[in-house]
Amino acid sequence: MMDIHQILKQLPHRYPILLVDRVVSLEKGRSIRALKNVTINEPFFTGHFPHRPVMPGVLILEAMAQAAALLSFETEGLTPDDQTMYYFAGIDGARFKRPVEPGDQLVMDVTLERAKAGIFKFKGVTRVDEELACEAELMCTIRRISAGA
């Protein structure tokens, strides 16, 4: 398990783009279950949409990618620093099955399918109240960056 303080030590993201509130389970090299509590105070709801707030699908995918990053760092035994970046490299088969609205809690289950040469492939499934909200295959990579980049 990880609380928000531990997550902040692992992810470089901060408000308004930090999209993981808690990790409820993590098995190195295999899977992670993470939570995102969606509130009306999210900045994107102002414009998406004013009369019927819906969380943008791309942010649901980003939330799953952040959970995948936490799994990758734990699996590799890495502690992120200013020279380590975790990039979203690809998405396949993204499907959105229900809208995510204020008051919902995203339960994200991400499974590591394959890891080779710093490239990770995952299967992600997000549910709200046990109902499928989103599923996708994610590809991410960890890269060292130079001081001038």
Rank of each mutant, 00 (worst) to 15 (best):
M2N: 07
D3L: 07
H5L: 03
Q6I: 06
Q6F: 00
I7G: 01
Q10M: 10
Q10G: 00
L11N: 07
L11P: 05
H13Q: 10
H13L: 04
Y15T: 13
Y15G: 07
P16E: 00
L19D: 02
R22M: 09
R22N: 03
V23K: 03
V23L: 01
V23R: 05
V24C: 00
V24L: 00
V24W: 01
V24H: 00
S25M: 01
S25Y: 00
L26F: 01
E27W: 04
G29I: 04
G29Q: 06
G29S: 02
R30S: 12
R30M: 00
I32K: 00
R33I: 10
R33E: 06
A34F: 01
K36N: 08
N37V: 13
V38W: 04
V38Y: 06
I40E: 07
I40A: 04
N41V: 09
N41M: 06
N41P: 08
P43G: 03
P43D: 02
F45A: 06
G47L: 01
G47D: 12
H48T: 13
H48I: 08
F49R: 07
H51F: 03
R52L: 09
P53S: 05
P53T: 08
P53I: 07
P53G: 05
P56W: 01
G57C: 04
V58W: 01
V58E: 06
L59C: 11
L59H: 06
L59K: 03
I60M: 12
E62N: 08
E62Y: 01
A63G: 07
A65K: 06
A67T: 05
A68F: 04
A69Y: 02
L71S: 05
L71E: 03
S72L: 11
S72H: 05
F73Q: 04
F73T: 11
E74W: 02
T75F: 09
E76Y: 11
G77Q: 10
G77P: 13
T79I: 13
P80N: 05
D82Q: 08
M85N: 14
Y86N: 15
F88S: 06
G90F: 11
I91T: 13
A94F: 04
A94S: 11
R98M: 10
P99I: 15
P99S: 10
V100F: 09
V100D: 09
E101C: 15
P102I: 14
P102V: 14
P102C: 12
Q105G: 11
Q105H: 13
L106Y: 06
V107I: 15
M108H: 04
A115P: 06
A115M: 13
G118S: 13
G118D: 14
K121Q: 14
G124S: 14
R127D: 04
R127H: 09
R127M: 11
V128K: 10
D129T: 11
D129K: 14
D129S: 13
E130P: 03
E130F: 04
E131W: 10
A133C: 08
A133G: 12
E135P: 11
E137A: 12
L138T: 08
L138E: 04
L138V: 09
M139C: 10
C140D: 00
C140L: 11
T141Q: 08
T141G: 15
R143E: 14
S146C: 02
